[in-house]
Design a protein around this nucleic acid. Structure first.
Lengths: 337, 337
DNA sequence: TTGTACGCGTTATCAT
DNA sequence: ATGATAACGCGTACAA
């Protein structure tokens, strides 16, 4: 019940035992050259005094903080919440702690966070890019400081950096196949903003999947939304106005799908009958809904986060940067509701 | 485009300018005793050399890390994701970073995380207790180390610690009133495990709310669940087996409500007609559902997190511990869907 | 106004 | 097997 206002240090232990601080240090670290007796005495006293090494001193000395920084758009997104949850678990296993920063899709905030991480001397960074990020100079900057960075989910294109992401084409193939098997020929894509990589990728894979299944591709069945509720409604309205409406829809993500469901309800369109929907990223919510989408394409946020973290720890461990740049691409998968 | 393999230090700047390191240090910190000219020269060179102070050294020296630790059960819970999202924003404003730890409701993990935080010399801790935590000795332990801790949401009872939480009684009053106004007299409570404070609190407030509205309280209308799907089903089955079934249900949380919805669908019970439901914690999901609950009782996770963070920073700033223990109780509120 | 000297807690190196 | 010393980068009392 003593009150250690001043934390116990190695020096104090040394003084009380009338030995040198270096001996204490070595004893505590099980250095082989220290005698068993001394080691025991030191450890015993350290225990009694409730000695706790001052990590800030160790960080300072070892130039290592056992800390990684994670930057992602928004923590309250279920997708990213799952990812960071998995990252934290992997990091914990490695005795690393996780520093947190959310960019809110703001490039300026992203840079601030990265700078903050750098001044905090994190050992590495995991990052999922915000929607509006265009300037990627910070990658080179981090490289100079020898801080490894691994991207996940929303990763930069055409840049040689370690990244982990989900290949949407496999899931889209499955989705189109699922539609085709059910006799659909007029399949629409409610896509995100044309400027987004994620949109382009969906579009290209969608087109290819149609071709692979011998289905015609028609521009009018691809509509774009800014992902706001109004945008989603406007996109749906475009489809509704068509002479031959689509009987199946691939939706940009689950949020879009929710708006599609709402739109359909308001317009008296019977989901799962008049039109069938498949979307991206899997909510456990769906099973509770009366007319859930046919399925959604799972992108495995937890796996992406865990995988990215593992790669980052490999990079942190071996300074050798002559190894090939590690990438990891997960296959997306259609999951039926 | 120079490659600063070894980060620039104050010493180097001093050497290049042929002045002493202390002068450089003072100049960079705008110490009044340093001449304007010298200050400018130093700052200019520091800029050119892209000098970045070594935070680990500063942390070490100042015995302060500008870091807070946040412990909560599970990050992928939307409730906690919102909370930590708000916490991170408040911390960022104060130039603090956030260390993360999830307990997964495991008391052992909780202690490990706290120890990890302590060895990392965090300046303070925010914590939401796991469901299974009984031993609260760590609070006293942290007190000895003079590490302030503020609890939020799931807070310890009968312990004099700073805490922020939501008073459920106001929301429950509103819920019971809403039911009463609609003519319900047989109102059930599908509660969580009897051992949980959260359950006891709901139960007591529920009972009082019934009395306040002149409604009878009947034990048989209070059923308990372990919050698993099976448990929720079993609890609902108990209510279904009653001679006079309840026409209204207050549910422990939204997860329970989802199972209630599923149960009702399977048993052919028409929700919003045969039986009405109000639950706790608000999902934006509800608006997309065909028969959402009547409402839910909002507990404001973001506000709780932000408020707890603000209190923690006050505690960190003023070492004076003779001030009264700051508590902050938010009123819960019924939100109609 | 500036420089000197020291200390924060730990560990690596060299000596004994 | 153990001790003495230096060093990590920075801030600051004290001296000049």
């Amino acid at each position: 019940m003593s009150k250690p206002n001043k934390p116990i240090t190695i020096k104090e232990i040394a003084r009380k035992l009338r030995i040198s601080p270096s001996t204490v240090s070595r004893a505590l670290n099980d250095h082989p050259s220290i005698g068993l007796v001394t080691t025991m005495r030191v450890k015993k006293l350290a225990e009694e005094l409730k000695y706790e090494p001052n990590q800030t001193a160790i960080f300072f000395k070892q130039r290592k903080t056992f800390t990684i920084g994670v930057i992602l758009p928004k923590l309250s997104e279920p997708f990213f919440a799952s990812a960071i949850s998995a990252i934290e678990e992997v990091a914990g296993d490695q005795k690393f702690t996780v520093l947190l920063g959310q960019s809110l899709d703001n490039p300026e905030r992203e840079l601030n966070i990265i700078n903050s991480f750098r001044t905090h001397r994190v050992d590495g960074i995991l990052m999922s890019l915000g929607k509006n990020t265009t300037n990627l100079d910070f990658i080179e900057s981090l490289h100079k400081y020898e801080i490894p960075i691994v991207f996940f989910d929303c990763v930069p294109e055409d840049v040689e950096v370690p990244k982990v992401y989900c290949d949407l084409s496999t899931g889209i193939q499955e989705a189109v196949q699922a539609f085709a098997e059910r006799g659909h020929t007029q399949i629409a894509l409610v896509n995100g903003p044309e400027t987004l990589n994620a949109s382009v990728e969906r579009m290209l894979s969608f087109k290819k999947a149609l071709e692979d299944h011998g289905l015609p591709f028609d521009d009018k069945y691809v509509v774009y939304s800014d992902l706001s509720e109004e945008g989603n409604y406007a996109a749906m309205e475009k489809l509704r106005m068509l002479a031959d409406r689509p009987s199946a829809i691939l939706a940009f993500n689950d949020y879009v799908t929710l708006d599609i469901i709402k739109f359909a309800k308001e317009k008296g369109i019977y989901l799962g009958h008049d039109v069938h929907v498949i979307s991206f990223a899997n909510y456990s919510m769906w099973k509770y809904m009366d007319n859930p989408p046919l399925g959604s394409i799972e992108q495995y946020p937890a796996e992406q986060g865990a995988q990215a973290a593992k790669i980052l720890f490999q990079l942190i461990d071996k300074k050798e940067s002559d190894a090939p740049i590690p990438n990891h691409i997960l296959a997306s998968k259609l999951v039926y509701q």
